[in-house]
Write a protein that binds this DNA or RNA. Structure first.
Length: 276
DNA sequence: ATGGCCATTAGCAATGGA
């Protein structure tokens, strides 16, 4: 089972690159962020023609998330609705289209696009922290069902200093502040684990390179796109790869895909054997 | 060096992204 996350920074601009990548990698599930398109204009036919199931939640110009799957997408939940009560707070956080979840082959996949936050003294930063807190509440409700869980997407946070190219300059700032990191760690609740770090502990692995500053040419990036797995899934993870070369494409997204391979479904013998 | 570039918009200048 191959599950991928990719902030494409406009699905319509990136469509040819997305289709090429799908044909090459053939992931079971691709989770997109920053589709930047309202639902009625989502280019769904092209994915359906290739045999993919799709679910999406978008808006004009900003944000937008989508699931593109070779498997049945069931129990699709858009925004925070479905886990949290339908009240004023929930509808406020649902205005920006940043979250979609579904069951795929028994795995609860939660695709998120965490707010950027602009800078530490901005209103947008306050919103980012509130959004993370709301996501924590969402996950607390969701976890009661005890589904194997994959939380993935663009978190706009480098979890640790080894996840950004110049910690001396950038640690403590936006995407690397103590508050953002604590809130991220807090919502994972010791139940969800960053699968990339199971396979690679070193620095120098990035998923995003700023369009400015010739950061790609200098390989000065950040690892702000992550895949978090619950225990049964993490035990069965086989690899986690960052598809770095796509950043070298003509007209690339500033993010590249991150892909996890999981042995799934697992059979009872394997589970008994592991627990034994 | 806190700016660079890129995508979008009732659209060519302003805004947001990270």
């Amino acid at each position: 089972m191959l599950i991928a996350t990719w902030n494409v920074n406009s699905i319509r601009t990136r469509l040819p690159q997305i289709m090429n990548w799908l044909k090459e990698v053939k992931p079971d599930l691709l989770c997109l962020q920053e589709t930047k398109v309202e639902d009625k204009l989502f280019p769904k036919e092209i994915f359906e023609k290739e045999g993919y199931q799709i679910s999406f939640s978008g808006q004009k110009a900003y944000n937008g998330v989508a699931l593109i799957s070779q498997h049945l997408l069931s129990d699709v939940r858009v925004g925070f609705t479905g886990e949290l009560p339908e009240n004023a707070e929930t509808s406020l956080f649902n205005e920006q289209k940043r979250l979609i979840s579904a069951l795929v082959d028994g795995i609860r996949v939660i695709n998120v696009y965490v707010p950027n936050g602009s800078n530490l003294s901005s209103e947008k930063y306050k919103y980012k922290i509130q959004w993370l807190h709301f996501l924590k509440k969402y996950l607390q409700e969701q976890s009661k069902r005890e589904e194997p869980t994959c939380l993935l997407g663009d978190f706009n946070i480098a979890p640790e200093d080894r996840d950004l190219h110049n910690p001396k300059r950038s640690s403590g700032g936006i995407m690397a502040s103590k508050k953002e990191r604590e809130n991220l760690k807090d919502l994972l609740d010791d139940k969800l684990e960053d699968v990339f770090r199971v396979f690679e502990q070193g620095e120098g692995h990035w998923s995003w390179w700023d369009y400015r500053t010739a950061s790609w040419e200098r390989d000065q990036g950040w690892r702000i796109d992550q895949i978090y797995l619950s225990d049964q899934l993490i035990r069965n993870a086989k690899s986690c790869k960052i598809h770095k070369k796509l950043r070298g494409n003509i007209q690339p997204s500033d993010h590249v895909p991150v892909v996890v391979e999981i042995k799934w479904p697992i059979d009872d013998f394997d589970e008994d054997f592991l627990s034994f």
